Amino acid sequence: MPIDSVGPTGNLLLDALSDPDRALLAPDLERVTYAKGQIILEAGAEVTHVTFPCNYTVLALVVTTRDGRTAETATIGHDGMAGRLVGLGHLPAFASVMVQIGGPMLRLDARRLEAAADQSAALRDLFIRYADCLVAQLLQTAACNALHAIEQRCLRWLLTLQDRIVGDTLPVTHEVLAAMLGVQRTYLTRILRELQDQGLIRVGRGRIIILDRPAVLATACECHGRVRRYCEAVLGPVYGAGD
C-alpha cells in the first residue's frame, strides 16, 4: 500500500524530504514489519532493496568471521536506512543487516531510489550526506574497537541505541550485547556488573536501564559524541538535537 506522500512516515530521513521529493518515492514504498533477530540482508547477497526503519525499530550492520563470531559495525534507527547507498551502483552486501529491535519499516526497490535521485538534486544530496554519516560511524567504530577499553565500548553502544529509541530502558539481552561487541557473554556480564556498581546502569532480564545519561556520557569514550556531532552538522534536524 503506498504511503501518504505528505504525512510523516516515522523515518526522519524520509520526513526531511520536501513534499515533491517524497512524492517521488511514496508510490513505491512498501510497509513491512520485521521481528527482532531477523536477517533482512545476508552478506554477499545482491542488494535489491533499501529499508527505512520507522519509529523505534533498530537495525544493525553485522560482520561474521569464519569461526562464527560476530561484531556490530553500525547501528541504524529511524534516522537512517540500510541497503544500497545512493550512487554506489549494483554491489553485493558486505555486511549482514540484522533486526536489533523489531517493528515497522518501509522497503523500497533500490532502482526506484536511484531513479528518484536522478530526478531531484535535493533528494540525491540528502541521501549522499546520510551515506557520509554512515561511513563516519563505521570509521569511528573501527577506531573505538581498536583503541578503547571494553567498558567504554559498551557504554558507547548503549548510548547509540538509546539515541534511537524513547526512554532509558533498552530492550537488549546480555547475549545480544556480547555478540554485538564481539566478546564472551560471561566477560560482558562482569563488565555490566561493574557499570551497575558505579550507578550508571541497572541490568534486568532482557533489558538494560540507563540510570544517569550525563554520567554515562562522561564515562564513555569520545566516540559516541564525535559521531553524533558530525551527523548533526551534516544532516542537521534529521539527526535531532545534540546533548
Score class of each variant (00 low, 15 high):
residue 22 R to A: 07
residue 194 E to N: 15
residue 77 G to T: 00
residue 45 A to R: 14
residue 42 E to A: 15
residue 149 A to E: 13
residue 99 V to S: 00
residue 236 G to H: 14
residue 42 E to K: 07
residue 207 R to Q: 11
residue 23 A to Q: 11
residue 34 Y to M: 10
residue 168 D to E: 05
residue 202 R to L: 15
residue 104 P to T: 10
residue 176 V to C: 05
residue 52 F to T: 00
residue 32 V to G: 00
residue 196 Q to H: 08
residue 211 L to K: 13
residue 28 D to T: 07
residue 223 C to E: 08
residue 166 V to S: 05
residue 177 L to P: 04
residue 216 V to L: 11
residue 203 V to R: 13
residue 129 R to P: 05
residue 35 A to G: 13
residue 91 L to Y: 10
residue 176 V to I: 11
residue 79 D to W: 01
residue 89 G to S: 10
residue 123 L to R: 06
residue 233 A to K: 15
residue 75 T to V: 15
residue 15 D to F: 06
residue 65 T to H: 10
residue 30 E to L: 09
residue 23 A to P: 06
residue 154 C to K: 04
residue 174 H to P: 00
residue 34 Y to T: 09
residue 95 A to E: 14
residue 46 E to Y: 07
residue 60 A to T: 09
residue 115 A to Q: 13
residue 106 L to N: 00
residue 238 V to M: 11
residue 86 V to H: 04
residue 185 R to G: 04
residue 6 V to Y: 09
residue 37 G to M: 12
residue 206 G to S: 06
residue 131 A to P: 07
residue 32 V to A: 07
residue 101 I to Y: 10
residue 192 L to C: 13
residue 98 M to L: 14
residue 16 A to N: 09
residue 143 A to K: 12
residue 157 W to H: 12
residue 84 R to L: 14
residue 61 L to Y: 08
residue 242 G to R: 12
residue 180 M to H: 15
residue 152 Q to V: 13
residue 190 R to T: 11
residue 136 A to L: 05
residue 166 V to K: 03
residue 71 A to V: 10
residue 29 L to M: 14
residue 189 T to D: 05
residue 46 E to P: 09
residue 73 T to D: 00
residue 74 A to N: 07
residue 117 A to Y: 00
residue 215 A to L: 09
residue 114 E to K: 10
residue 162 Q to P: 01
residue 177 L to N: 02
residue 190 R to S: 04
residue 36 K to W: 01
residue 110 A to F: 08
residue 114 E to L: 01
residue 44 G to P: 09
residue 20 P to H: 11
residue 160 T to K: 02
residue 222 E to C: 08
residue 26 A to N: 02
residue 11 N to Q: 13
residue 178 A to I: 12
residue 195 L to I: 06
residue 205 R to L: 14
residue 187 Y to T: 15
residue 214 P to W: 00
residue 218 A to W: 03
residue 2 P to N: 05
residue 102 G to M: 02
residue 56 Y to P: 01
residue 28 D to A: 13
residue 145 N to A: 10
residue 130 Y to K: 14
residue 168 D to S: 11
residue 225 G to K: 02
residue 190 R to K: 11
residue 236 G to V: 12
residue 171 P to S: 01
residue 236 G to A: 15
residue 157 W to D: 10
residue 59 L to N: 01
residue 57 T to V: 04
